[in-house]
Structures are given as C-alpha cells and as structure tokens.
Amino acid sequence: MQFARKLPKTDTGVDDGIEIRIENLSVRFPDKNSRATVDALTGINLDIRRGEFISLVGPSGCGKTTLLRTIADLQAPSEGTVTVRGRTPREMRLQKKFGIVFQSPVLYDWRTARRNVCMPMELMGLPRKQRTRTVSEMLDLVNLLGSGHKYPHQMSGGMQQRVGIARALATQPEILLMDEPFSALDEFTKEKLNEELLSIWSIAKKTVVFVTHNIAESVFLSDRVVVLSPHPGRVSAVVEIDLPRPRHLAVRDTPAFGALVSRVRNSFEGV
C-alpha cells in the first residue's frame, strides 16, 4: 500500500491485516429459460486488506454486484468461502459490521434526513442522546448538517445519496459496501461526491468495497482496482493504483492517471 496507514500487525499471524478473504468463490444462479445454471462468479480468490479502498469494476453481468452481495451475506456462495475477519459474513451481518450503500438511496420517504440516519441506531437500541449526537456527526461528515429536517423528496439525488452514506456510517461499521452508489447521478455531482467520499474515508478509516462500471471513478478512488470479466464472472486483473494521497480531482489530468485508466481498460477479457 502506497499511502501511510498504520496497520496493526502481530507475529502470531492471527491478524495479518486481511479484512476480507475470498477463497475459490463460485456463485451460480438458475437460468430463467432452461434447467441449466448461469455462472455469475467462478473461482474468485481475493484478499482485501484492512482499511483498504478497493473497487470492483466491470461491465454488466460480470458479477461485481453479486460479489459484493456475497460479502454482505445478501447472497449465499455456491462454492468456496468468504471470511471477514475470520468470521462468516452472516456472523458479521448479525453484529451489524457492514454499512451498505445501494445504487438508489433507499431512503424512507416518511422520515427526514436526520431520522433516516437515525434508523439503524434505533434498531440497535442506542440511547436517544447518543443517537442525536451521532446523527449530527454523520450529517456533518457528509456536509448536510443544515438539511437534517428535509424529507427525501425535498433533496436532490446527490443529497439523498449522501444521506445514504451517513446512514451506512451511523452504526460505526467495520466495512463499507457500496454498490454503484453514484451511477444514477450526473457527472458533476458524481465528481464532487467522489472527492467527498475520499475525505470521509480518510476520516472514518473504514475498509471500503466499491462497485462501479466507471473505470475513471474506480482509479480515482481506489488503492486497488479489481477487474472482473463476464461469462463466466471472474477476476481478470488486480491493478494497484499508486497515485499519491490525498487525491483531488486534478489528479485526473495527470499522465499517470491516464496510464492507469488504460491499464484497467486493457485488462478486460472477452467483452
């Protein structure tokens, strides 16, 4: 890893800095039109380090969302295992260690921004005082402290997605799982949120798994970009992004950035 981040390391090998270990993972879905099955993912091996920002990038049908859903325990593996800090995804989910941001903001229309962010903490049964304080902290983190009273329909798509991020962070999860969170937004809002996400990540210090089909976005954000190819879904390359941090949008104009984007683009197989 190129950026300065102290990882707790022990000689016993119990903590090897690996947050998520994916071993020989395959996921098959029944085909709608025949009795056969479709290989969404085959033989995936991947280690995700603690505190790392990793992107899963690929075209539609490459299984990137399925991989994310398998980590989140929203999808069961057909073969192989996923371990998160030595535990199963199910154990981690039950302990509320995942913060998930979906493609659409998935906000509750009947709750204000504040109450949306508050909702996971209500489920955890946290005392009101603590909830109120955390909500303010999280909204401040996504620059929405002044809009807490607004209902989702009164906010723009970008604001809604930021509320979604604040909500995902409110439970203090170990791992932030993001499924194409900015793909429905316009280019300007997306770039702004990309930069904001990096600053949130540098403050919150979470492991982030970020699914996208936008190559430039994945290069800009990530420590490593995992390139997935379809039919069957498989890892065709893992590209280390050694751009210096903190990164700002200007980095996109550098030759190094362009070269990395090309490397990722040329890693796709059979598209």
Binding site: L94, V106, W110, L123
Partner: peptide, 29 residues
Amino acid sequence: VEREKRELMFSLAASRYDVYRKLLIPSSL
C-alpha cells in the same frame, strides 16, 4: 416495498417486529 429497502433491514439484522414497525407498516400507509 422495494427489495433494497427490505435488504437494508436484513443487513442491519432487524427483527421481524422492527421490519414491520419501521418499514412495512409506514410504507403501506
């Protein structure tokens, strides 16, 4: 109720009671 809203509750390990109280009943109003 949209699948993603249910999945959000699932990922937060919400009890059945909470799923109804916080999601299904308000959204069915």
